[in-house]
Simulated assay, not measured.
Amino acid sequence: MKIYIVGSVGSGKTTLARKVARKLQIAHFETDNFVWTHQPTGDIRNEPEVRDYLLLEAINRDAWVIEGVHIDWTDAGLEESDQIIFLDIPFRKRTWRIVLRFIRQLLKIEKANYQPTFTIFRRMFKWNIYFENEMKPVFLVKFNKYEKKVHTLRTDKEVEGWLNQLERG
């Protein structure tokens, strides 16, 4: 099974990908980790050749779940996937999740790939708005090509229903 999960910051991509990877016992990849090399002194953007190599290395596996907001350079992953899950969670709910995540990270209840700073916190709100106004329309057009394998999930109930269906095979 090869599953590609996409959506905005706060949509639940990572949470869902972790659940899927555990249930199916398959590898889980975050597209952010293809784009960035995380270091104690700060993240370093990978060259496109490195980023693309990491993506190809992941999609050449027999089974995987990849999640992220990136679809501009990840066509190979979208092509190879059996299912594309678009988490089209409402804007307000994503905003609330961003706040909760930041609090959990500050309290060290939730781990982050980055240092949870107020600057990053503010950027997440901007990314959320940018996704809604700029990226989402691009996603919807791009998904036309893959319409038979795209599942658009808008609520927690729909996500749980899809997960239950996945379990049943």
Rank of each mutant, 00 (worst) to 15 (best):
K93D: 07
W162V: 02
K93L: 13
G12V: 07
A76Y: 12
Y130W: 07
Y146N: 08
K149T: 12
I89K: 02
V159P: 00
F118P: 00
W73L: 06
Y146L: 05
M124K: 05
T119N: 06
R22F: 08
N144R: 15
W96T: 11
P137D: 07
V150Q: 04
I85V: 15
A63I: 00
R45W: 03
V159H: 00
R94N: 13
E132H: 12
F29D: 06
D62S: 13
N46H: 04
F121K: 07
V141Q: 15
D82Q: 10
A17M: 02
M135I: 15
L100W: 08
I71N: 06
N128V: 02
E49V: 09
W162P: 00
F86D: 02
R154I: 03
N144D: 15
F86M: 06
E160W: 02
T74I: 02
K19R: 15
F34E: 03
S11T: 00
L54I: 09
I120D: 06
V99L: 12
E79M: 04
V6Q: 03
D32T: 12
W73F: 12
T152C: 09
H28C: 15
D75Q: 13
L16M: 15
T41I: 04
K142L: 14
D52M: 05
E147M: 13
L166W: 01
P40K: 02
K157F: 04
Q39L: 13
L107G: 03
T74S: 11
V138F: 14
F102D: 07
R94M: 09
S81A: 15
E167Q: 13
G169Q: 03
G68I: 10
I109R: 14
G10T: 07
S81K: 04
K2G: 06
L100Y: 06
I59E: 06
V65D: 03
I26M: 07
D43L: 04
N113R: 14
F131P: 02
N46D: 05
A76P: 09
K136E: 10
E158R: 01
K126Y: 11
H70Q: 13
A17N: 06
E110K: 07
R123P: 00
N133H: 11
T15D: 03
L107M: 14
I26V: 15
S81Q: 03
Q39G: 01
I98H: 05
